[in-house]
Amino acid sequence: MIPAQLDYVRPASLDEALRILVDREGEAKLLSGGYSLIPLIKLRLAQPALLVDLQSVPGLDAIAETDDALVIGARATHRDIHESAVIRDRYPGIVDVAGGIGDPQVRNWGTIGGSVAHADPASDWPAFLLAANATIVCRGQGGEREVPARHFFVDTFTTAIEPTEVLTGIRIPRRAAGVGGAYQKLERKVGDFATAGVAAIVRIDAGGTIVGSGIGVTGVSASPYAAVDAESALAGKRPGDDAFRAAGQAAAAMSQPVSDVRGPVDYKRAMVAELTVRALRRATERALAFNG
């Protein structure tokens, strides 16, 4: 498998990258880790005229907690995220996601920004970002804007980012006491794209009631989605399998899977329900154990 001809540039700054995107709009495609994009280029399913490699753009790979958010630079690799001390300490749901993407080599090089911008309908990060109500930071020549994850994943391989913008980072609301998250995915073997994946975040108040939740689902629709009906079903409920199953059914009902090599439609729906329950169980354990 041999790529079609292409051109390549490696801008040294974000401004230079943005300028190239404007100058070569319609031809330019951003390249981050490349582990999603280059296989498609080799299959010639994608034939960008120009690859704009962000590897030399400084300042895009920091991982830090602010007063209200966990901010992850777009070029942080899955492994950077998986091994980040703050994430290991406080964000086990993110550890679930980052540790399960692809395989070790993919995690060494694949980046969160690349993955999110690529928007494969079965990729893992979107599920979590939807569940967490994260925002995606996009920078254009006119400045920066933040797009809520829930408005970002438009369609298969299609996001709200403009072709002249660079995805620079992810902002995830800072974890508070009583909040826990988890990600559960089903894959045919390790390293596979998810047959289905569900991220769950719950917020449980001092009285033991679910006062907030986020459910993100991947692999079972044209693009990952927030299972808002499941979130509604959980509101005000005591955590437990009855509530989780109801949420699972609601999340499954919102899925639009197609029958393919990963299984028939009803199986995939059932897996959404099952994984939702499992993710909620784990998220709840973590929420109850976290005092801020």
């Binding site: 299959l43 399913l45 079965a122 298969t156 639009q256 197609v258 029958s259 393919d260 090599v261």
Partner: peptide, 14 residues
């Protein structure tokens, strides 16, 4: 062909 073979998981929806 290739689209059916490699893109099976996206084809029907698309």
């Amino acid at each position: 062909g290739t689209l059916a073979s490699v893109g099976a998981r996206m084809i029907e929806g698309t």
